[in-house]
């Protein structure tokens, strides 16, 4: 029967030797686990869709958020995520080659392909960590209004995004960090942004080449640019400077975007991490010859299913987070 490896040793019909679906118990349970896990991820992605449809006019545009590539400067939207996708698909390929070699009982080939799979997975997890780091540190900086909306800045002549450091001025002694030794209730504050709201606003007034960009998406699918007068009026409602993103503030736009980014890619990254660990365990088992003695490599096939599933989920995360 096809690629299925039979673990049963020919028990009687009612002793579990019967396989009406042509798959061993372990493999079937792996599949059913994957089905339930797929439903979990679908729940997350559907919740993402819910929040996005709720704020469909103000949702951040992913290509403008994920524009960085390690070791380079400049804006390369999507390139790095596409590369990560390719790395994960590639490690799926080495995994399926390991399963294939396992069916042919070629121990050394299984060892090599498992090794490559683990390496691919590790590169992917590392890339995701880098992606998180870049996202958290932030890019250009923005202002947040009383209503929690984000105001970003654009250079009027080139249409490029302007970083706060491009135009904000420094007002000496404007604001010092509040430390808990000075507070009545001994509450300090987290890190201070590089500029205060006053500094950004003053810099904006002095530099006529800067315009405010709101979260609202116009008919062309781009964020709305305000005129100089509208921008100045809008800046009056700014309450704080936001640099980077966390669960509460997000310089890229809707904070829910950051929440879902951390939650969904984090949950997926956790799957990849556990997949790498499981693959490593199986890798060492192959090396010490456990499956050679057992007579079949079905275990490699089962962890392979999990690994492919991680890849499968990423394909969907990639589409719904980065493309659509």
């Amino acid at each position: 029967m096809s690629t299925t490896v039979t673990t049963g040793t020919g028990e009687k019909l009612w002793d579990g030797g019967n396989q009406p679906l042509g798959a061993s118990y372990g493999k079937m349970m792996m599949w059913f686990f994957l089905v339930s896990d797929a439903l979990t991820f679908s729940g997350f992605l559907a919740a993402y869709g819910f929040s996005r449809f709720k704020f469909i006019e103000t949702w951040p545009i992913a290509d403008e958020v994920f524009t960085h590539v390690p070791f380079t400067h400049g804006s390369y939207p999507m390139i790095y995520v596409a590369l990560m996708t390719f790395i994960l698909i590639m490690s799926s390929v080495t995994m399926v080659l390991a399963v294939d070699a396992g069916h042919k009982m070629q121990k050394n080939k299984v060892i090599w392909y498992m090794f490559l799979t683990v390496i691919g997975g590790a590169i992917f997890v590392g890339s995701q960590a880098w992606e998180w780091n870049t996202f958290i540190k932030g890019d250009k900086g923005a202002l947040e209004t009383k209503g929690g909306r984000i105001l970003q800045f654009v250079k009027a002549d080139s249409g490029e995004r302007a970083a706060l450091s491009d135009f904000a001025v420094t007002i000496p002694g404007d604001r010092v960090q509040h430390q808990n030794k000075n507070g009545i209730w001994f509450y300090g504050e987290g890190s201070m942004p590089s500029y205060s709201v006053n500094e950004v606003v003053k810099g904006f007034k002095e530099n006529s080449n800067i315009l405010v960009r709101t979260e609202t998406i116009n008919a062309e699918g781009e964020k709305t640019l305000l005129s100089r007068e509208e921008s100045l009026a809008k800046l009056k409602s700014a309450t704080q400077v936001v640099e980077g993103a966390n669960l509460i503030h997000n310089e890229y736009g809707s904070r829910l975007f950051a929440d879902f980014f951390f939650f969904i890619t984090g949950f997926h990254g956790f799957h990849v991490l556990s997949g790498v660990v499981i693959n490593l365990i199986i890798f060492f088992n192959v090396v010490i010859g456990t499956y050679e003695r057992r007579g079949h490599y079905e275990m490699v096939e089962k962890v392979g299913l999990y690994w492919h599933f991680v890849d499968l989920v990423w394909v969907f995360v990639f589409t719904f987070f980065y493309l659509v």
């Binding site: 690629t3 679906l21 798959a23």
Partner: peptide, 20 residues
């Protein structure tokens, strides 16, 4: 294609595949 060829659902019994 990931499910059918990498996870070789193509080679499984159709009843199993449909349940999944």
């Amino acid at each position: 294609y990931i499910a059918w060829d990498f996870m070789h659902l193509r080679d499984e019994k159709s009843s199993f595949r449909r349940a999944i």
